[in-house]
Design a binder for these strands. Structure first.
Ligand code: SF4
Ligand code: SF4
Lengths: 136, 136
DNA sequence: GTTAAATAAGACTCATTTAGTCCGAGTTCA
DNA sequence: TGAACTCGGACTAAATGAGTCTTATTTAAC
């Protein structure tokens, strides 16, 4: 229920790999998937998402690959999760996750506000932790 | 990915209902499921789990029902989650959730320890919050 | 004692999500 | 031109989540 998805874990592994390496170095999906035994195609998708959210830059063609484009000290764990799972993945309260009225007990619910308070506390943990801090 | 399950939400709604009522009062599943529009059978299951974990006492037969048996000031949110979802529901790191080797990249994983540190911070939030604090 | 109101518990279905695969592109260098 | 890359959609399979169904048991009241 509170577990990280494999996708997010793979993303963190990839980001860590690039973080501990030399800045500006190009890494390929194959290289990373080999080293950590990750499913290649799945990791490829994840890398693409990281490109779209501007965590990494992509170079196509032979000798292509990915380069970390953001400062690890400024990448928050919550951002990584959001990039992979889409916004509102870190949203504990379903009805606040952009899907306001898909909960059929929304009108009678008495725990919504308490949960939102709790959510801010958990979000704080994920927001304040950068990947640099995490991996050092 | 980080959302509370319906079961946990229903459990919290039920516990809150009993918390704000008179101490020692008997509440039936029907009463609660009616009031908050929760699926009766599902809530019934949840109540049974709360009994097994000694949050509430059950009285069978006519005029039976459930009575809150623990002090709301001493019930932690994490306990409720564990009672409903089973231990390790609040465990972010899959391989640490009692299933040590079901992750096939366990040997090559570089994020395990960082995630465990993160986990303790999130657990702290859920451990330190009591349902009394939550609902007042 | 019979009935009605309640809990107990397991099996079951249906829908959603997650994890992973497949395939056919486009890009770039040599 | 071909090899080594990224790109992106469609697809399948497994796991989980939410909810239902059914049968049994307990107990108070009539
Ligand atoms: S149960 Fe309450 S808190 Fe959870 S989603 Fe529905 S309305 Fe929001
Ligand atoms: S990926 Fe790493 S952290 Fe996540 S479950 Fe596997 S070993 Fe544990």
């Amino acid at each position: 229920m509170f577990q990280f998805s494999k996708k997010v874990e793979y993303a963190l592994i990839a980001i860590r790999h690039m973080t501990v390496g030399h800045r500006g170095q190009i890494y390929t999906t194959k290289e990373i998937s080999d080293k950590y035994q990750l499913p290649y195609e799945l990791l490829a998708k994840i890398m693409q998402k990281l490109v779209k959210q501007h965590f990494i830059l992509s170079y196509q063609g032979v000798n292509g690959g990915y380069v970390l484009s953001r400062n690890p000290a400024e990448i928050r764990v919550s951002e990584v999760i959001n990039a992979i799972e889409g916004k509102s993945a870190v949203t504990i309260v379903a009805c606040e996750a952009g899907t306001p009225d898909d909960c059929n007990i929304h009108t009678t619910c008495t725990i919504k506000n308490p949960l939102i308070k709790l959510q801010t506390n958990i979000n704080k943990v994920l927001d304040e932790l950068t990947v640099l801090e995490m991996f050092s």
